[in-house]
C-alpha cells in the first residue's frame, strides 16, 4: 500500500467521566474500502464514528484521516477535512426546523461555499433522487417516516460527494426491503464514487454484503478486525457469536 490509509486509529482510548468507552483501539482502513463495525449497544460504536469526524477527541492515541491527526488540527483544517466526510447519524439527525431540502443545502452552504444557488439546488435534487426522496424536498423532518428520515440523512451525508462516509446504523429499525435498498445505495456509492465507508450496524448479513472488513467492539475493546470469514475462525467467543449469530 503506497497510498496512505483513509483512516488509522493508533491506540485510541476514550473515557467519559470514569467510564472507559474505548480502550487502546488500533486499526487501519484503506481508501475505497468498506468497514462495518459490529458490537452490542453501548460498546462505543457511535463514539468511534464521532472520533473519525473530529466530533470527539481521543483522550490518548491518534485518529488520522488520510494521515492527518484530526484531534490536533485547527478549526480551519478540520473544516477542510470534513468537507470530504459525510456523516449519517443514527436517527437521521435532520434539523427539525428545516425542510428536507434546506437540510441538504446546509452542508453545501457551510462546507463548500463555492457553489452558486442554482448549482446547490441541482445538487440537492440529484442527491434526493439518488435516495428516492425526489418528491419530499419541501417536507419537514417531522412529516417523514423513519426510513425516509434515514434516507434524507443519508442524502445530506452524500450531498457533498464525500470520500469518506460514516453511517451510524443506517438500516436499523427499518423493514428488510428498505434496509437492503439502503445497502444497495451504499454499495453503489462505494463503487461509483470510490468512497470509503464506515458503517455501524447490527445486521451481520448486510455487513457481510457491504463490508471489506468487519470490526468487532466489545466493552470498549477492538476484539476482532478482519473479513467475515477470518472472524468466524476467531478464538474470541463474542466475535464468533456476533458474526455468526445473526446469520441464521
Amino acid at each position: 500500500m503506497s497510498d496512505p490509509p483513509a483512516i488509522e486509529f493508533q491506540h485510541v482510548s476514550k473515557t467519559f467521566g470514569n467510564r472507559k468507552v474505548l480502550v487502546d483501539v488500533s486499526f487501519k482502513l484503506g481508501k475505497g474500502e468498506a468497514l462495518c463495525i459490529l458490537g452490542r449497544s453501548g460498546t462505543g460504536k457511535t463514539v468511534t464514528l464521532k472520533l473519525m469526524d473530529g466530533l470527539l477527541k481521543p483522550d490518548s492515541g491518534k485518529v488520522c484521516i488520510e494521515s492527518e491527526d484530526i484531534a490536533q488540527v485547527g478549526e480551519k483544517d478540520l473544516s477542510r477535512v470534513r468537507r470530504h466526510i459525510g456523516f449519517l447519524f443514527q436517527s437521521g439527525a435532520l434539523f427539525d426546523s428545516f425542510t428536507v431540502g434546506e437540510n441538504l443545502a446546509l452542508p453545501l452552504h457551510r462546507l463548500d461555499k463555492t457553489k452558486s444557488s442554482a448549482e446547490i439546488q441541482q445538487a440537492i435534487e440529484e442527491t434526493l433522487k439518488r435516495v428516492g426522496l425526489d418528491h419530499d424536498k419541501d417536507k419537514m423532518p417531522a412529516e417523514l417516516s423513519g426510513g425516509m428520515s434515514k434516507r434524507a440523512g443519508l442524502a445530506r451525508a452524500l450531498v457533498l460527494n464525500p470520500t469518506l462516509l460514516l453511517a451510524d446504523e443506517p438500516t436499523s429499525g427499518l423493514d428488510q426491503i428498505t434496509a437492503s435498498e439502503i445497502d444497495n445505495l451504499l454499495i453503489k456509492v462505494k463503487k461509483d464514487l470510490h468512497t470509503t465507508l464506515v458503517i455501524v450496524t447490527h445486521d451481520v448479513r448486510s455487513a457481510r454484503r457491504v463490508a471489506d472488513h468487519i470490526a468487532i467492539l466489545d466493552q470498549g475493546r477492538l476484539v476482532g478486525f478482519g473479513t467475515a470469514s477470518e472472524l468466524e475462525k476467531s478464538d474470541n467467543e463474542v466475535v464468533r457469536q456476533l458474526v455468526s449469530e445473526s446469520c441464521i
Binding site: K50, D53, L55, E75, L78, S79, R82, I85, F87, F89, Q90, S91, A93, L94, F95, D96, L106, P107, R110, L111, R156
Partner: peptide, 16 residues
C-alpha cells in the same frame, strides 16, 4: 432534544 437526536453533532460535523 437536538442534543439527544444528534442534531447538534450534525451541525458540528458541518464545522459549524
Amino acid at each position: 432534544n437536538m442534543r439527544v437526536t444528534e442534531q447538534i453533532d450534525a451541525i458540528e460535523s458541518l464545522s459549524v
